[in-house]
Design a protein around this nucleic acid. Structure first.
Lengths: 175, 175
DNA sequence: CTGATATTTCTGCCTTTACAGAAATTAGGA
DNA sequence: TCCTAATTTCTGTAAAGGCAGAAATATCAG
């Protein structure tokens, strides 16, 4: 696959973003490439397009599949895997949020509950316990909100976003 | 400052979280400590509480101040800085979002606009251009929504969250 | 201005992470 | 079964990041 300068810039920038958000650069670059690629690509095509080692691409693709951002598919008469990224931007955002919640947010909430239980018995000062409890409560509040909003049909979500913005315009500022 | 086991667990976990989200471990640990500390702490107190090098603490505090998560204050008759974290959880969340938007999200949108402009002239395939444009549009949509919601008074935001959750409960699932 | 304390910047070591190439494994065709 | 292509796992090396201690700078009291 031939990369135009614009495509290169896109992939490079996406890679930097990824690095700032916890994934490594190659993973993010491969994701960027598949994100804009009109057709599924094989691992080898990705290799030569981005000048990455085959092994590296293999690992990255596995990670992307773990995040459910990329799927492998087969074509008749071809034994290679062909990889595609999620095509819909909304689905992409949803997936990232859902995955991060699952593997980072929920375990943190869980850990906080344990910490709080322990804090009852190890004479942690009361004000500290209170701060911890408040922290947990806010996280639980956000998670409850997320859980319910995520169940809504996509169209309702979009309508709510637009409505939210509209309401905001009519109210006095400062937030 | 004496750390109970619960406090240690809290700080350690917070540190790991931070590492997964792009800050380094020490920065996140210091933030966790200040987050639960009932009183402002000096750099030296932080040092010995967490067993970190003085220099390291200094750098981390500077970074935390850059993120506007921590403030330095002085006390009469004491020439040392005393550091406090944002005390309100909501403010904390707001600040993190606002800062990440400022230094990562907005620059990305900017870069995407440039990429799109370039894509017009360097014969990037039309489907690729379209994907890029869609990507930009979704990001702009979210940003617009954020900008307006963030202007709302805190109480209205909270009411909206609770309302959103309530509506969700009355609508059919899948989303 | 001098001395003492607080704080930041600089330097080098060490750990962690990323990656290319080699070896191993899996799957398909004859 | 054997051979070949595709893919993954293993291993050593290179690069990056984190951090302690040293040196430099700033701040204040006398």
């Amino acid at each position: 696959m031939q990369l135009t300068p614009a495509m290169q810039a896109f992939i490079l920038h996406w890679g930097e973003m990824g690095a700032k958000w916890g994934t490594n650069r190659s993973v993010a670059q491969i994701h960027a490439l598949l994100h804009i690629a009109p057709e599924p690509m094989t691992a080898d095509e990705i290799c030569e397009t981005l000048n990455l080692a085959r092994s590296n691409v293999s690992t990255a693709l596995k990670e992307l599949q773990g995040w459910k951002l990329v799927k492998a598919s087969r074509q008749l008469g071809d034994r290679r895997d062909h990889f595609t990224s999620i095509r819909d931007m909304q689905d992409l955002v949803d997936t990232v949020i859902a995955e991060r919640r699952e593997r980072e947010f929920l375990p943190t909430i869980e850990a906080l509950r344990d910490v709080l239980a322990e804090a009852e018995t190890d004479n942690t000062p009361a004000p500290v316990r209170d701060r911890m409890r408040e922290t947990l409560q806010v996280m639980e509040m956000f998670d409850g909100w997320y859980q319910e909003v995520s169940r809504l049909p996509r169209k309702v979500q979009m309508a709510a976003i637009k409505l939210g913005a509209r309401i905001a315009r009519f109210l006095p500022g400062s937030g």
